[in-house]
């Protein structure tokens, strides 16, 4: 397993000045934030988007959230990041909003049928309502 390329991470930080960082690089308040960051980095490396394109879509997401009353405390940065990921994959035809929703619902069913403390795994039946 290879560690992250520090140059790739630095480019991501440069392209996204709002990204919470410390002198060493990005910092995250919760594990899912790091997962969302990792997904964007991976998709960028796959050539799905350039950072300029990402930054402008993220900017739009933040602007519309603020127009809708987002308090803009910085705490919500990764919520905007995640919303941008969802928009980007739909825009690039990687998947559809419907597919995102059906997977989200499937994970919810998987969690509900998994006793507390066991690994939550997605099964085919989770996709049936």
């Amino acid at each position: 397993m290879t560690a992250i390329d520090p140059v790739a991470a630095r480019l991501a930080v440069q392209a996204n000045p709002g990204l919470p960082t410390d002198p060493a690089g990005p910092v995250f308040r919760e594990p899912w934030e790091a997962q969302a960051f990792a997904m964007a980095l991976t998709l960028h490396e796959q050539g799905l988007f350039a950072w300029g394109e990402w930054a402008s879509m993220l900017g739009e997401t933040i602007k519309s959230a603020q127009a809708a009353g987002d308090p803009d405390t910085g705490d919500t940065y990764y919520h905007h990041w995640l919303a941008t990921l969802e928009r980007m994959v739909a825009t690039k035809a990687v998947t559809t909003q419907a597919d995102l929703t059906s997977h989200r619902d499937a994970w919810e069913r998987a969690a509900a049928r998994t006793p507390h403390g066991l690994p939550i795994e997605l099964r085919t039946e989770d996709f049936q309502s």
Binding site: M39, L100, R104, W107, L118, I120
Partner: peptide, 22 residues
């Protein structure tokens, strides 16, 4: 309640959905 089902937040559900699709 205690010993019942697992718990994922709305955000975690969305993150897992996206990860699974990718």
């Amino acid at each position: 309640h205690h010993d019942e089902a697992s718990d994922l937040s709305e955000t975690e559900l969305r993150v897992r959905a996206l990860q699974t699709i990718l």
